[in-house]
Design a protein around this nucleic acid. Structure first.
Lengths: 226, 226
DNA sequence: AGACCCCAAAATGTCGACATTTTATTTCTG
DNA sequence: CAGAAATAAAATGTCGACATTTTGGGGTCT
């Protein structure tokens, strides 16, 4: 999907990107209010663009709007994580199967490249964080899916999952996977480019489920302090 | 789904509802610009709330934003309709299967009620238009699906489809179905409440595909004047 | 005639200020 | 002292005005 970057991004767009990054990376606590006044000061702009940015994020499920009471970061819960994971699995598998069916040689190359870069330590280029490379890999897997709607939904769900992941990591660092994530990724990539759709879907499904399990275990009670 | 109606809706929310209705009913041509100035005059409010309303509608896919160039009604195309239909079919079938699996007796009642009311002529209550009842029926079918994410996606896709339908009807009236839509609805409802999931999904899938065919045929070239 | 530049009209994006609602604090009462 | 009413503080929602960008038209030069 080509990023239609406008020649000159508007303040609202810029604010949306920045705020999205803050929420996704776990910088602001779930359920906390978005005080536009302080945000406006930090971002060095008026409240107008901030309102629009928050509205856009609300569309992605990262922010909730309550009339006359402003915006607040969407709360998290065990049920939400379960629903999110289950739905993501379904959507993601549909997209993967499509992608395997439609992908050409270039697609295979991108998948293998993203998989290769994923685990290696990119010593000199920390501009691409691990989260970015991880996102790029999963995106490459489904990139050949022809349905823009499905891909849009998938992206939304991926973003929401990423927030949970970053919140868990931010909370305490004991979320270290006992599993070999690297091997899982490689197995998925190989099955995908080899056009073994059933196997790839099975592997990806297990991969997602396992990720969710780790996250659920990471939240003993799910009451974030702040 | 309980409508969390805030005690006092804000102007932006009101504008969003009104504008959504206008776009869905085919009042404004696809691809046309949303001139906020004239809209502000018609709605008797400032451009601020209008901006927010348009932003929300952009999240639902009814409006597209281009930085520095404002908002415009999302364009329509044959490919978009095809993708939309295919994706909707997938999502809708997932939701229906879930709903059949989880629905209780009350759900069965609501489905049958919505189906019964659908075709009958409600002589004295035109407040519920046919579109509303049609929407209510399809919503009742999947109402027992436990996944809020899936239902949200389904609702979005349904709305987008409804726009195409209204545009076709608005364009020229020869979009009269040769098929017996009423019978199709009834068959789906019966299969659903009888817990014959496979049959219900097959019927609903054919129903959706047939609707899309009618729409595609309704657009000879798909170049809206204006 | 066609392409280019320049300029005016219109529309967008942003800001600061005001009215209203919510939220927190104080004060009064039983 | 508890609880509720009254009040003060803060935050939201909305408006009108200004700066910037896009858009459309006219004129000029090759």
């Amino acid at each position: 999907m080509v990023e239609e970057t406008s020649p000159r991004r508007t303040d609202a767009t810029l604010a949306a990107e920045r705020l999205r990054h803050e929420i996704l990376s776990g910088g602001v606590a779930p359920g906390s209010k978005l005080k536009l006044a302080s945000l406006a000061e930090r971002y060095a702009m008026s409240r107008g663009p901030l309102r629009e940015a928050a509205t856009r994020l609300a569309a992605e499920g990262l922010v909730t709007i309550e009339d006359q009471k402003g915006f607040r970061v969407t709360a998290i819960s065990r049920e939400d994580l379960l629903d999110l994971t289950a739905t993501r699995k379904r959507i993601e598998l549909l997209a993967l199967r499509d992608s395997i069916g439609h992908g050409d040689l270039a697609w295979e190359g991108h998948v293998m490249a993203a998989c290769h870069v994923l685990d290696r330590v990119t010593g000199s280029d920390p501009a691409q964080t691990f989260s970015d490379r991880h996102r790029a890999f999963h995106e490459a897997l489904v990139a050949a899916c022809p349905s823009t709607y499905l891909l849009r939904f998938r992206e939304q769900l991926y973003a929401l999952t990423e927030r949970y992941r970053n919140l868990a990591r931010h909370g305490d660092h004991r979320v270290r996977d006992a599993r070999d994530v690297s091997a899982e990724h490689q197995a998925i990539a190989e099955a995908a480019v080899s056009r073994r759709a059933d196997e790839a879907c099975t592997l990806l499904g297990e991969h997602l489920a396992r990720t969710a399990e780790v996250l659920i275990e990471a939240y003993p009670e799910l009451f974030g302090a702040s």
